[in-house]
Each structure stands twice: as C-alpha cells, then as structure tokens.
Design a protein around this nucleic acid. Structure first.
Lengths: 248, 248
DNA sequence: CCCAAAGCAAGAGCGGTGCTCTCGTTTTTG
DNA sequence: CAAAAACGAGAGCACCGCTCTTGCTTTGGG
C-alpha cells in the first residue's frame, strides 16, 4: 500500500513523524509553562510521552534545538496575536490600531510569561538566537510599521528633526524597513518598537512590582504615548483625551 | 586569644568567611561572563577553587542563592555606574545628565551582557526575583527620578494631559516616587524608565541584529528623545539639534 | 515481489549536575 | 576548659544531556 490513491502528502510514517514532533513540542510547552525554560528536561518530556529518552533525539538532535523550535513557535504565536488584533482594528484610527496591537502584545505576554521570557528574555541557547528565528521575530515589527506607513500615506505624520549624528543610520533604517517613510519617522518607529517591549518585559518580569499597581491602565497610557510619539495623532477615543501636549 | 586587643571586628574565622564568600562569587562571576547563567555550575566553581563541592554549601545554601547574590551585586554595579555618570555630568543641563546616565546604563550592559541578562532578562531563580533584590534594583530609577526632579524644581518641565483612566495611578506613582512632581510627569518617567531598558535589552539580546547598524548613535538619539519626552528640553549640545519637534 | 536501505524505538552507559548526610577536625564561646 | 558551633571532605542519591549499540518496521528500487 505504498503511495495509495493520491493521499495528501506521504505515507503513514511521515505523518506519524509530524504527529510525534507536535506531541513533543506540546508537552515541552506544557513543562515550559509550568516550570520555566531552565527546568525543561528532555527526559521528563519523553517520560510523560511514554517513550525512551533516546528516541526523542530522532526528532530534536539536542535540547537547544527543541528550545529553538519553541522559540520560533512563540514568535509565530505572538505575531499572529498582533496581526489578529491589527485586523480586528482595521477600521479604526491609526493611533487606535497602534494601541490595539500593543495591547495584544502585552496580553499575549501576560498569558504566556515563560514563552515570552524565552523570546524576549535572556536568549537561552548558545549566546545568540539562531538566524532561523529572525523572520519569525520580525512579525510584530512589520505590523507596527504597517500601521505607521498607512497613516503616513493617508495624511502625513508628525516629523522630528534629526541630529547630524543619527541621520545616516535613520536614512538607512528608512530605506531598509519602509522606503516611503521619512528617516526621522523610521528612527522613532524602531525605538518605539524596542520601548514597547521594555514596557512589556518590565511587567512580565516583575520589575513593576511594588511600583506600578494598575498595570493595564498604565500600559494603555504608555502605548498611547508611544503612538503619539511615532506621529499618530490620538483621537480622543471615548471622550477622554490621552497624551496630548500642553504647556507647563 | 578570644576578643584580642580590640581588632576590627571578629576572629580570623569570620574574616576567612567573607574572603571565601568573595572568592566564590568572583569565580562564579567569571564563569557567568564566560558561559552564561545556564552553564554556571557549583561543582565547577568549587573545582576551580580547589575545594569540595559540598563545602560550598556552607556559604550558599543553593545554586539559586548564589545566583541571587550575583543578581544583587549586578544591580549594585549597574547602579554605581549610573550614579557615577550622574555625578560626572553634575554641571550640565538636565537633558545632558539624562543622556549621560542612559549611556552609562547601556555601556555597562554591553560590557557585562551576561550579568545584564541575569537582572533584566528572564529572572532565572524561581519565577520572580526575591524581594531582597528590590532595593538594589531601584538605584537606576532613583537616579533618573532625581534628574527630572531637579530639572522640575529649577524651571518646570513640560506637562502632558492624562486620560481619566490613568489619572489615579499616575497620582499614586507621583505620591510614592516623587511627591514634588506632577502625576503626569511621574507616569511618563516610569514609562521612560522601562523603555530605556527596552532599548538596552534589544541591543544586548541581539534583537537589533540586521536592523540597527550604528547602535551607539541610534541609542544616543533614542535617549535624547526619551529626555525630551519626560520634559527635559534638549539644549542643542554641540550645535547639532536633537529630537526637537517640527511640523509635518 | 523481495530484499537492501533507511528510519525508528529501546536499553545501557558515560560524564556531569544539584544537593544531602555523615564524619572527623578546627574554631569560637560560655 | 569543655561544650557548642562552624567547617572541610567524602560518599552517595537522583537526575540530567547525550551517545552507542541492538533489534524491529517501514520504505523504495531492481
């Protein structure tokens, strides 16, 4: 019964392989959520799946490779959450879209703290994350770029003057990430991208303990500031103004 | 020879203890810098120090306790770097002081990436950092608060309007951190604090790979933006304007 | 169709880890 | 000076990542 009547892809062996691979990753994700990356053990995963630990090496050649797979999946999961939030806020004003995506990132991080730590905490495998993770890591960034680019195409965004020092780097960034955006906007956009994850990391990693109490409101406020900062005007969503400048 | 002629503190045993404790931490820090926190091994530390691994448990009851000690030391080291930079920039304008402290934080982080990962990456011991680390962790924040407070006392800083949602939290933050600062300033200050470490973390953890090339200039630009954002006017330091608003 | 080749599961085993317990020895202290 | 506390070393337990070898099953080409 080899190559039966035009089945989807391959024989039973190949399908079993993807199933076992998925089961391993699922169980690993369970242990990750329960005890953190440091405690994740190949032997424990194999034990829970009822297989010999050595058999597991047929699917992942090392513990770091399993971790890397989980990292990529986490990037994708976070990226999907961000893209879904963006799609949900499609009709709203750019600043509202920005805030929605930021809140989706935060929500995902709070819901999956250990997976978040895996990708935005200390990179566990080796010293650097493998290059394979780069495309998956960029998804959130692309969503944010898209919002600002659309807003810019629509009506133009605020501008910032650049110092002579950063001007070349800003021009390079704009050329590489969003050629239709002015260099100054590209520079603040990249900075805002990093700053967003600073806010999320501080909350998830407990740095806001005993400092910020109402973290949800605080984050929304900070995200609105960030939106304003990248040039998206804040639209007074529900009658409560947010982060608009006033004299001292 | 108990309680001899008024020696400094205690007998030879107590002094030996602090020396051995320091030697353990030094060797642990060496291994940390070499291979990262995940590879740090009590047995390897003991081996390098020529003592039995079990003897080491007289000084640190567990691996996590050693890590915690290293975490506190790292916070202190970073805090000292920030305070030193602040002191060095004492005479300059507030925005320059802010930028100097930010650059000191970044400089320390890139010089000690594994120690930085220990404190601002995923918290390795347990799930949260122990409460003992909180005071040491706050030092950088206090420096930043001090700069803004001094600037505010001097001439007043820019203001932001707050949404009704964050207003209580902002008032609480101001009351707790800097009673002489308006709530809106306290809120953006705390956000800027987190955002600063977002920028540093992205650089140290490799998130800027293949994205930002001239990281030093980019960081200085972002730090200047942050200074502007918390209300410190940028003083056109060397004739090159930075991050001052202009219409679109 | 059949048989070699490749993929797979299981077991044993190596060196390493964190941590505990016990047992002599040394230092401090009442 | 003797009791108590602190110390160092060794043996040992349970666990870890990873490798190697041994049988078995699925696959694919002649």
């Amino acid at each position: 019964m080899s190559t039966t009547h035009g089945a989807t892809t391959q024989g039973a062996r190949a399908r079993a392989r993807v199933e076992v691979t998925a089961a391993i990753k699922d169980e690993a994700r369970r242990q990750l959520a329960a005890d953190g990356a440091a405690k994740l053990s190949l032997r424990a995963v194999a034990r829970e799946l009822g297989m010999a630990s050595s058999a597991l090496y047929r699917y992942f050649p090392s513990r770091d490779d399993l971790l890397t797979a989980l990292i990529i999946d986490a990037y994708d999961s976070l990226g999907e959450a961000a893209e879904a939030a963006h799609a949900r806020a499609a009709g709203e004003a750019p600043a509202q879209q920005w805030i929605a995506v930021c809140e989706a990132v935060r929500g995902w991080a709070v819901a999956h703290p250990h997976e978040y730590a895996l990708i935005y905490g200390s990179p566990v495998p080796g010293y650097f994350a493998p290059a394979t993770t780069v495309p998956a890591a960029a998804r959130v960034g692309y969503v944010l770029i898209g919002i600002v680019r659309d807003a810019y195409r629509g009506k133009g965004v605020a501008q910032w003057k650049l110092s002579a020092e950063v001007e070349p780097e800003a021009a390079r960034l704009a050329g590489e990430l969003a050629p239709d955006l002015p260099p100054a906007v590209a520079a603040v956009l990249v900075a805002a991208w990093a700053q967003l994850f600073g806010l999320v990391s501080f909350e998830v990693f407990g740095q806001f303990n005993k400092v910020v109490e109402d973290r949800e409101s605080f984050f929304r406020h900070a995200a609105a500031q960030l939106a304003h900062h990248v040039g998206l005007v804040s639209p007074q969503p529900t009658g409560t103004g947010s982060a608009s400048r006033a004299g001292s």
